[in-house]
Design a protein around this nucleic acid. Structure first.
Lengths: 260, 260
DNA sequence: ATAACAGTTAACAATATGTTAATCATCAAT
DNA sequence: ATTGATGATTAACATATTGTTAACTGTTAT
């Protein structure tokens, strides 16, 4: 390829010193509080502790700090591809919901130079988390609550990235069926309510009488029915509760005909 | 800065060959269809025709094709800064709504190498468009309707970028007060309705009886009142119509308590 | 038995919506 | 100046959806 022909001389422009993909991995963990009680749920984020030394044995940048999983993108893959690959490498988990939400490109965010971060969030359903394997390079991996994470000293500008990720998750939870990525395929209304309340902060959702009356009519979830019999479970309660699943209805809302 | 200390040897990783900021600039053009009639509105996008030669007199890449305005980002600015700067350079307009919506990083999208595009959309209110100046390097600038633009042979992957931008504009128009960026500060309900219908495709909005009854109660717009007198105009109709303006109420909607 | 409890259904007033029609102000044509 | 057309606004009313409180249903623990 002739640079003269193409009218582009790379030496004229300074180019970025690196292009990375970072992933804010969220999950909701349940803690049992007793039999026949819906467990308490809490939103957690997965971070890795940056190694002291690189593979080459040199001192690592931002070593010892907690950081988002991620890494350098290869030219032959997109940032999304890299996010999928790195999430698999770090957690051994495949097939997750991953979404781009921003780019962090301010000079100075990474001491090593002009390094861009293409930021994604990912949702890991709790039931897949058990499959988590130790990362191959034995980095420390841990889950933090939102309260905890903002107390930590985080690497780079990852605090800002996590704040933004949280904002996007909340928004997507309100406006899309994102909740399904936190839930098992078949779930009970109180589980759905629990997931929503863990992330969103809508007083309407807290009112059982409202939520439990409206929810069964939502067009994007449907009762699980087998052989004409509605399927029920008593996973969380003495009384059997109806199971629901998400269908592929894509809800559309607008601020112009909503209620306030 | 010692690379050894920081544990990063740039030569180990291939780095991007360029980092650009591209902006999909949208406006809504009104064409008068007669006195006392609300004008017809149409969504348009601003494109520039890529020059035959670079400033250095060499043949330009993707020359002669229509493309999104944009250009290489300097290390000391962010992609957003660059979008603001380039929009000012191309159109002479400042203070516009500009929003990031995606990154295009697939190898092969730009013949010159591994070149990233940080994509933004921008809204230019029609009344500011008159101030548009000829771009300093005398590139051709033109507005295209959505029908027209997808017939053109566009540079790079700009067709895909424009499709995505359109999707984001539609979504943001439904869910945020983005419409205010297409409107003068004080406007009439039919103008608002016109802007919304130009971008969105919601049958509810078309029903005047519904829209005109609900709109005055929307919490994010308010009647313009001066000295206790509601301000009205007959800009578009024989009958005087109430003026409204957006306030700073931030509407919140959720799929879980919407109506369907 | 019965108290406790999650899940579910009922009841009903208050509010909002879908729909059709009336009213109002103005201009343009007769 | 009467009439008709037009866009903005209000009225009217049946229907549907909320907000709210209460009752009912299985099941378990006492």
């Amino acid at each position: 390829m002739s640079e003269t022909l193409l009218g582009y001389d790379a030496s004229k422009y300074r180019t970025p010193d690196g292009y990375t993909s970072d992933i804010a991995v969220f999950t909701i963990i349940s803690t049992e509080v007793g039999p026949y009680k819906p467990p308490e749920k809490e939103l957690k984020i997965m971070l890795i502790k940056r190694a002291e030394k690189t593979k080459e044995g040199e001192l690592n940048i931002e070593r010892g700090k907690w950081a988002l999983p991620g890494g350098f993108i290869k030219p032959e893959e997109t940032a999304y591809d890299a996010a999928v690959r790195e999430l698999r490498e770090e957690t051994g988990i495949d097939g997750l919901k991953i979404k781009h939400f921003g780019v962090y490109d301010k000079l100075g965010r990474d001491q090593r130079g002009w390094i861009l971060s293409n930021a994604h969030y990912a949702i890991v359903p709790e039931n897949k988390l058990v499959k988590r394997k130790a990362a191959d390079d034995a980095e420390e991996v841990a889950l933090f609550s939102m309260d905890e994470v903002f107390q930590l000293e985080l690497a780079f500008d990852h605090k800002k990235i996590i704040e933004d990720a949280l904002w996007f998750i909340k928004k997507d939870m309100s406006l899309t069926t994102l909740a399904k990525n936190f839930l098992p395929k078949e779930f009970v209304l109180s589980e759905l309510q629990g997931v929503l309340l863990t992330v969103m902060d809508d007083p309407w959702l807290k009112l059982d009488s409202q939520f439990f009356r409206k929810a069964p009519t939502l067009p994007f979830i449907e009762k699980v029915v087998k052989d004409g019999e509605p399927q029920k479970t008593n996973r969380w309660s003495k009384n059997k509760a109806q199971l629901y699943r998400f269908n592929d209805f894509d809800p559309y809302v607008s601020i112009y005909n909503a209620k306030y």
